[in-house]
Design a protein around this nucleic acid. Structure first.
Length: 202
DNA sequence: TCTTCGATTGTCT
DNA sequence: GACAATCGAAGAA
């Protein structure tokens, strides 16, 4: 998408994370690198919802690591895991209620050369199909912790994209939760947009 | 201070 | 399909 689309207002994020995880699919995640737009359509997201959700990092309460999740919606919550990976989340719901949406995958459409640079040697198909991969591809790290997602001057924001019909949305349990107990382990809070050629413009 | 372990990825078999 | 890599936060001591 050559010209930029309208940027999502912070109010977009002021709803329960499960709803945002669905609605964020098809929106455009944009990052500026060296003055160029780099990003694409969000195609996979998961909801993490409150301290009672034992899969959510906020189960440990308010800590330095999870502080952003308790902050106002529409800001980035970023954390480091497994020794090498940054995870990008959008803070959702209301202030003081810890919930967020993990962005797990995007369909890159802009700044492909910049992405190729960071994903050197790999096939385009696996450039940004995982949460750690997309942050690497878009050069997203701790410096965006707590950053609002509606201010382009910060270099990271979310725009309007396209509506993806329900028939192309798959819903299932979240991924990689390890020893998280039930019922949280099986909560259908993962949303995935499938078969992009069917809904992609042009 | 020390130990454990993760909202993963890439590599090797 | 199995498994090691890798480091900072959390929890225990």
């Amino acid at each position: 998408m050559k010209p930029s689309n309208p940027i999502l207002p912070l109010s977009f994020y002021a709803e329960p994370s499960q709803k945002i995880a669905r609605n964020v699919l098809g929106k455009r995640l944009v990052r500026t690198i060296n003055g160029k737009r780099v990003g694409g359509y969000i195609i996979e997201a998961e909801a993490y919802h409150g301290e009672s959700d034992l899969a959510c990092h906020a189960k440990a309460g308010r800590t330095k690591r999870t502080a952003a999740m308790y902050g106002p919606p529409g800001h980035a919550f970023i954390y480091f895991t497994y020794g090498n990976h940054w995870m990008l989340n959008f803070v959702t719901d209301v202030i003081d209620f810890p919930s967020a949406v993990l962005i797990r995958a995007i369909l890159p459409t802009e700044g492909l050369d910049e992405i190729a640079l960071r994903r050197a040697g790999r096939k385009q198909k696996i450039w940004t199909d995982g949460p750690g991969k997309l942050t690497k591809a878009l050069a997203i790290d701790k410096s965006f912790y707590g950053s609002p997602l509606n201010e382009p001057q910060n270099g990271l924001w979310v725009e309007e994209g396209i509506e993806i019909p329900n028939e192309f949305i798959q819903i299932g349990p979240r991924v990689g939760l390890g020893k998280t107990p039930e019922p949280w382990l099986s909560m259908p809070w993962r949303f995935l947009a499938v078969n992009p050629p069917e809904w992609l413009p042009e």
